[in-house]
Amino acid sequence: MELLDILTNANFWAAAVRIATPLIFGVLGALICERAGVLNLGIEGIFTAGAMAGWMAVWLGASLWGGVLAAALTGAAFGLIHATLTVPMGLSQHVSGLGVTMLATSAAYFAYRTALPDVSSPPRITPFQPMDVPLLSDIPLLGPALFQQTALTWLAFAMTALVWWALARTPLGVALRAAGDNPDAVDAQGLSVYGLRMGAVTAGSALMGVGGAFLTMSAFDAFFFGMVNGRGWICIALVIFASWRPGKALLGALLFGAFDAFQVRLQTAYGGQVPGQLFLMAPYLLSILALVLAARRAEYPRALLVPWFKGQR
């Protein structure tokens, strides 16, 4: 039976983790923003801009890690725009977020076309290479899945732990969660609501930028139009699935990665008999299903989407 063969195939698990990596960055970034009370629908565009900036920096001669830094800074810059519009100015987070998505996507395409006016296929860079951890990578199934990945995948896992620690165990994390639950409490304790929220949106957007860079610097080796393809929106849904918890966010991203890797393999196995679109649809369908089951009990950050203004009580 092919289904079982797929599940016991090490390549499948390695692919699942690879597909999940940009989602891990994205969902962590969106989670940080939302925990502070700001929905960041700029994520889809920030992914695109990060993918573009990282790849372009390397193509212009930067090191790979220099490219990652460029992607993070690009993400942070667009995050700062969103934060300025939604936090001190208190504009609609939906409208501003969608605007940032359009702006960042167009800016990325514009930069690409300006730098490469008349190429039909983009120049390639040497991306991050998978690294073998000796001994550990020989563990059946788990070894190739976890220990034959690129450095960015490991960074994603490390960021999950870091974000969890920061939110749960540091004073900054406590203040950030309070800002997303009751900003009046933060203000009454003498902390800056604006500072916390803008910082969270900027930092979260930087993570989204890195998530985008994974696409051009690890999964592929060049920038293509439309390559983000809805991954940002998946992250927005995964945050709810994760109930705003970093550990569950990692789990959700891996689950989606597994669905996606599975459908690719099913297409190869059954492609002749069933239309391919059905398989393409499957991970999204299953994500919606998982969301319906998980999100019914989800407890939203109480101040999410609610603007707060200093001196208005």
């Binding site: 406590v174 969660r177 009046d184 409490a185 203000d187 304790q189």
Partner: peptide, 8 residues
């Protein structure tokens, strides 16, 4: 109106 974060 208490200034408490209910999630903390």
């Amino acid at each position: 109106h208490f200034t408490l974060a209910l999630n903390l």
